[in-house]
Design a protein around this nucleic acid. Structure first.
Lengths: 236, 236
DNA sequence: CGGCTGATTGAAATGCATCAAACAAAGTGG
DNA sequence: CCACTTTGTTTGATGCATTTCAATCAGCCG
């Protein structure tokens, strides 16, 4: 089925922004050395503690990356989508994975071996710099999130996450978030209890900020949400 | 005075772990291009929003790096000490600084121009990789802290921070933390109110986990503290 | 249909922030 | 060197946001 849409053999990483500093030759061998696979929702890509053999580039679908904390409660660190890469942090540090990654929307992933990554970093300094900038960008996000989670109320954080999801995953024609999360996943992103998310979401609905249809969240008052989120920095 | 101890002209970055992949020649020009300065407690190295011209390597002293959140409340992101580098993240991303850095213990810093950094990354792939690993390590810390702050109680987090400070700054002969922070700074690290820190510290004291003498914190029951911190991962 | 996961609501418990006030320490200036 | 201001610390009382527990309900699947 999925192979009809996009045969796994035919996938090329050439168009992806992350690889845009590569020469034709480098792209060619990259495309040769990668391995692509199609994964269903719920599949685990790698688990906390496992040894990684490479990183993954997401061609299609959505992945959640999370850490397991107290009592096995998951804390979602990020959502990755088309063009994003995952597993590179632990890989570069040459440690076992410190997060788990799971498909939350049917996906196609390309696995790029560690060797290939090292080789690119060694031979192509523009690529190394691009890589550095990716990690730096993620670190920035993380630092901002630390500040938010430490200082903001759950209400503010939920509004902020909704805005963040809106920017990352766009809205369809009628302003509905194109990512479907359970209330628990939302809670594990915001860092709160599932029940709190449920209550706050219905408050947001009452306040005419959003509309709810099952897991579909429709943003009907963006300015209002931004106000609730109490943004201080450059997020939107 | 400080110049008697360590003349600013004589400082070499050659011994620092961060530069250990550099060739003698690279070290020589690095040492030529850097600019060192001695800064008193309270001095601000750079401010959130300012444009950076290079990064800083800490030769002596302690620096706190923080973000300014709601109502100007500061959230301390990290403490940097001898051998650590700061300001590199925004620099590499070529953005204005997203944190502020302030001296909390008289320090000597070396400023290394952006040009020099770029040049090293371009010419020396081992250095680029080392740099990548530094950023990755910091990202890992940040992700762990997100999980902690989202899931743990203030009590657990305080214990954890004390342990973290112990590892980063060592203890003197009688098990006393070699870093002196105000209660407010501790609060801004843990992500809580100053009063909460005060109350919890005295609880810890009552529980014979620590001893307090002004800002001096003495760890008298390490195992107990570890238990309170409720560690799940590799921190200690 | 029964079983399972996820969603929802209510009620009760609580951890923590906030406010207020007093105190200690440390530096400033006359 | 003492009054003075400022900054940091401490304690108490109160309120509230959020967690936790419990129960019900809805949807889905084999």
């Amino acid at each position: 089925m999925k192979n009809l849409i996009e045969p796994l053999d035919d996938i090329t990483l050439s168009g992806f922004r992350f690889f845009k500093s590569l020469s034709d030759e480098e792209l060619k061998s990259l495309n040769y050395e990668k391995t692509c696979s199609s994964l269903k929702k719920g599949s685990i890509i790698y688990k906390e503690g496992s040894r990684l053999t490479g990183f993954y580039c997401i061609v299609r679908g959505i992945v959640k990356v999370y850490k397991t904390g107290i009592d096995g409660k998951e804390q979602i660190i990020r959502f990755a989508r088309k063009g994003d890469i995952i597993a590179y942090r632990s890989l570069l540090s040459q440690e076992s994975a410190c997060t788990t990654s799971k498909i939350i929307e049917d996906a196609i992933l390309c696995h790029v071996p560690y060797k290939t990554l090292l080789n690119l970093i060694e031979k192509n300094s523009s690529f190394a710099l691009a890589m550095l900038r990716i990690v730096c960008a993620e670190l920035k996000e993380a630092n901002e999130y630390i500040t938010d989670i430490a200082q903001k109320t759950v209400r503010e954080r939920l509004a902020e996450i909704l805005l963040l999801l809106k920017d990352s995953f766009d809205l369809d024609a009628d302003q509905t978030l194109q990512i479907s999360l359970t209330r628990e996943e939302l809670a594990n992103t915001v860092g709160t209890a599932t029940e709190s998310i449920i209550r706050l979401l219905s408050e947001f609905k009452q306040d005419k900020l959003i509309d709810l249809q099952g897991r579909k969240i429709k943003i009907i008052n963006l300015a209002g949400l931004i106000k609730v989120a109490n943004l201080t920095n450059n997020r939107s």
